[in-house]
């Protein structure tokens, strides 16, 4: 009987390790999505700010290292939006805002989906941990295991 418990413990341990890895992978994807959401939110804020600016307004363009160069806004209604695969398309400001809004919505949906998956994995991990601890105690005390 003890060997059966040991076998169950071994299986549980393998499953828990697998679940842990799955949770890490899901968390890492959520982090990636969060980074993109922050980036897109920032772009959206910039577009909303630009909307209020007139042509030839003076701008400070960040060049990194907390440094800026002066530039003039040639056309506030022309925005170049990346489509992926190194391709960018010229859009009107409103179109660009719509694209970004759409991307943000899709990302929020994916994030919610991943968070749900993460919660399920965490629940299963807790169940396994409880089962594992119970069996370990039973094994240590030399008791006959109850239903597993």
């Amino acid at each position: 009987m003890a060997s059966k418990t040991e076998e169950t413990l071994r299986k549980l341990s393998v499953e828990m390790r697998f679940l842990e890895q799955t949770a890490e992978a899901i968390q890492s994807r959520i982090n990636m999505i969060n980074a993109v959401i922050t980036d897109l939110t920032y772009a959206n804020m910039t577009l909303e700010g630009l909307e209020k600016e007139k042509e030839n307004s003076e701008l400070m363009v960040p060049i990194g290292g907390n440094s800026y160069i002066k530039a003039r806004l040639a056309n506030p209604n022309q925005v170049i939006v990346g489509m992926g695969a190194g391709i960018s398309v010229e859009k009107t400001l409103q179109e660009a805002k719509d694209i970004i809004k759409n991307r943000l919505e899709n990302l929020e949906k994916s994030k919610a989906n991943l968070q749900q998956q993460l919660a399920q994995v965490a629940e299963k991990m807790n169940e396994d941990k409880e089962k594992f601890d119970r069996l370990m105690t039973e094994l240590r005390e030399g008791k006959k295991p109850k239903n597993v």
Partner: peptide, 21 residues
Amino acid sequence: EIEQALSELQKTADDTVIYKA
């Protein structure tokens, strides 16, 4: 990514200004 870009390109008018990185 390429499929998404192609699908976006399909939706754009032929005279749309396009940039390549």
